[in-house]
Design a protein around this nucleic acid. Structure first.
Lengths: 348, 348
DNA sequence: CTACGGGAAGCAAGCGTTTTCATGCCGGCT
DNA sequence: AGCCGGCATGAAAACGCTTGCTTCCCGTAG
């Protein structure tokens, strides 16, 4: 039903080959001819069929982005970063969520990918080593975000350092009972990020000569609600922590909420630090370890484009810097015997 | 390089037609044959080329989602909603941002769409009536989110009511100087949403017999920072408002930040209400008008699928309900002469 | 005057599927 | 015994483009 290239050719009185060349701005087309073709195409409302063009030319002008979830802030920011650089090259973005083992298997096998994308960005998906190798062998240009990969380029932040930085910050302020809210250790996804941050936490603790207390490490599900639950559990203990390191700002928000509900002063009674530097963190005045989320996506996209252009180069490994944003939710622990005059939060 | 259907056919000792049928689970294939084909395909790692399959069959198994931006919470949630129902039908999502006039023109004309998507969801993009008509005439199944459309199905919330509800809430609490933070009236995008909410605000004000003060309507750019700036400007006035209605929770967060920095008690000195019911709003204890963001996306996707299945039906128009979430940031205005005992916020 | 060169345009061969139509085979029915 | 219908399979025609190769034409150099 829609006009095809043949219709345009007929109307312009030239061959389809000439139409194809004229429309794509290729050389060796007389200006007068090109103009006639352009006009014919315009009046017919002709748009080339992407499938046919791709089939003939061998590419798709599309890159795939695989994420475990779409909703959370982190992923939407990475996605935005990818999108910005990809559309600058006039490519499209195919979004795919893979959130279970079957999906990961299919992704690694390249199912649904052939003839769909020219390249793939895999964000924070817990691929096994075997799956990564399979993906790399898959001839499809791919880059991994948030995890190391042997044969694939990857972009990530040093999450051990993230954990270390946050913990050291709290230690320097004088805290010794520091809780960690992250992901359950027995996480079926065994994605490295939480584990790495936990490692940094342990390292910093060890440096300060403090023995880690397993009771202070709880699951927060990387959500506001999960962070709130975790904080509740921690603060209900007979020996509550004086500081909480939440592995994401969203979980930190949950902590702050609980603190406020309980009338705890922050940072007087409880210090809270997050990770991400979420959009709304400045508004909360939340101390956090900032990571360049948007840049992560952009960098991954640039890397992918480079691989797509140059073919298989030596897989790069790009580490992006993080930095402590010391704001208002962390401070020295209160001396236990001295009750806080600021135990009430005026907001409530 | 990758195995084609012909390779599979050779290896299984059958024709390509049989391979095609066997792999897609079509009837009239002997079980033994099917098994042989499956095995051949598996050992060859065969995956059908989506372009070729699409070209031959006429569809793409992909739906497009066009948004003006990816980063903001609202869009990521809508996207997630769409994605959930679309992938349940084993379709893919092609993400496209259109944020300028040229992009809108191209979108309406269907550029880059043919052979790329089987259907399109347009989210909060300021199409002119002519462009909507063009899109509708474009034979491509499409649904519009966040705007009325003559010839296209659409899903939206009653944004006039949203504005009315929020404003009435503040009025009932006793406020009379109520500021509105939204989008600049001379918005070049002239997207209807802010304008509708503003209308609701005016209607509620009129009902209460209050003349709107243009000085109390300011632009907040729908971001945290924009909300903060707007709040600053409002509170710097000689006659500051006692309540602020922000058209999004993110802008409301900016307001709360400013209030806290200035030592204003919320809701004692200043009431703040937002719109959206953002993930972190419960943590802030923010009063807001909740809209079912995820559901909006899901509903749009379901509508689109229905159109794709059934062909052109009469264009539906689905309005989703909103509701007031009365939380802690709104309350009666303080009696002006009585200074607040809670002017200090313990968080800072 | 012929040979040569280069730009403009056309022909036709793919690209890898799906799908229609034709073919062959077998069993059951009249 | 002769047909007929149904099932499994194959051959080949689309699908709509890109692209290598060829042809044509004209101007210039020898």
């Amino acid at each position: 039903m829609p006009a095809s290239i043949g219709d345009v050719a007929d109307r312009a009185g030239v061959s389809v080959a000439t139409v194809s060349r004229a429309l794509r701005g290729l050389p060796n087309v007389a200006p007068s001819t090109r103009e006639r073709v352009l006009e014919a195409a315009a009046t017919l409302g002709y748009v080339a069929d992407a499938r046919a063009a791709g089939l003939a030319s061998g590419h798709t002008r599309t890159v795939g982005v695989a994420v475990p979830l779409i909703g959370p802030w982190f992923f939407s920011q990475v996605l935005a970063g990818v999108e910005a650089v990809v559309t600058a090259r006039d490519l499209d973005v195919l979004l795919m969520t893979v959130d279970d083992a079957a999906g990961r298997e299919r992704l690694a096998a390249g199912a649904r990918l052939r003839g769909r994308v020219d390249g793939l960005i895999v964000v924070d998906i817990a691929l096994t080593e075997a799956q990564k190798a399979e993906l790399a062998a898959n001839d499809l240009p791919a880059v991994v975000v948030g995890a190391e990969a042997e044969a694939l380029p990857c972009v990530l932040v040093d999450n051990v350092e993230v954990g270390r930085t946050a913990t050291s910050h709290l230690l320097e302020l004088g805290h010794t009972r520091i809780a960690l809210i992250g992901h359950a250790r027995e996480d079926p996804l065994h994605f490295p990020v939480p584990e790495e941050r936990r490692r940094g936490y342990h390292e910093a603790l060890a440096c300060a000569g403090i023995a880690p207390d397993p009771a202070l490490e709880v699951d927060g599900n990387f959500s506001v609600a999960g962070g709130a639950e975790a904080a509740t559990a921690l603060l209900d203990r007979v020996d509550p922590p004086t500081a909480i390191l939440a592995m994401s700002d969203e979980m930190a928000f949950g902590c702050l909420r609980v603190a406020r509900q309980r009338g705890l002063a922050v940072p007087g009674d409880l210090s809270v630090i997050g990770v991400d530097d979420h959009d709304v963190s400045p508004a909360w005045d939340l101390t956090t370890v900032s990571q360049p989320v948007h840049r992560v996506g952009g960098q991954a996209a640039e890397l992918l484009l480079a691989v797509m252009d140059a073919g298989a180069t030596s897989p790069a490994r790009i580490a992006l810097p993080t930095s402590l944003r010391h704001r208002g939710t962390t401070g020295p622990p209160m001396v236990p015997t001295e009750p806080s005059p600021l135990g009430q939060d005026a907001l409530r």
